[in-house]
């Protein structure tokens, strides 16, 4: 065991700590950004895009029961998307890596399900309620 300690130098530990901090950086920026948006009355929407074009918007807040949305692309590729209560997941797909299916259910703002072979993205966004438009009048 002592041999392992001998291998590690001081800068190794500094570097590893730095790398951990860097990997949480996008998370910190995102949650900072979201605190401004996430107010009372805001709703969660799942936005499904293929090739950057919005295919479907599904309201998640207040959703009950199970819905199945079938997304079929021109070349026969398909993704079956299941909305269960306030969660969304890709239930089945014919892409080679199945990363989107393995991701499972997502329900928090900013979470994404990505199927890169099909260029399909499911992203959960906060949609501010209509009350927020009134605030603009202040000036």
């Amino acid at each position: 065991m002592k041999a392992y300690y001998h291998m590690i130098k001081r800068w190794d530990i500094i570097i590893i700590v730095l790398l951990v901090l860097i990997s949480f950086l996008p998370f910190a920026i995102f949650s900072y950004q979201q605190t401004g948006l996430a107010k009372e009355g805001s709703e969660l929407v799942a936005i499904i895009t293929v090739d950057n074009e919005v295919i479907k918007e599904i309201n998640l807040t207040g959703h009950e029961g199970t819905d199945i949305h079938e997304i079929v692309l021109d070349d026969g590729d398909y993704n079956t998307i299941e909305v269960k209560n306030e969660q969304i997941r890709v239930k089945a797909a014919n892409c080679p890596d199945q990363v989107d299916v393995l991701t499972g259910f997502v329900s928090k703002p900013g979470q994404t399900i990505i199927c890169l072979p099909h260029r399909l993205v499911v992203e959960i966004q906060t949609k501010s309620g209509e009350t927020e438009e009134d605030i603009i009048v202040s000036s």
């Binding site: 291998m7 860097i22 990997s23 949480f24 995102f30 950057n52 994404t112 990505i114 260029r119 993205v121």
Partner: peptide, 30 residues
């Protein structure tokens, strides 16, 4: 990936990946 998907929220996935990356990186270093 975030460039192809055109959404930088993909980067939120980084902590999970870098956790495994750090573990395997240390092992590979040894």
């Amino acid at each position: 990936a975030s460039w192809i998907a055109q959404t930088w929220t993909v980067l939120l996935y980084l902590p999970v990946l870098s956790f495994i990356g750090i573990l395997s990186g240390v092992a590979i270093g040894i």
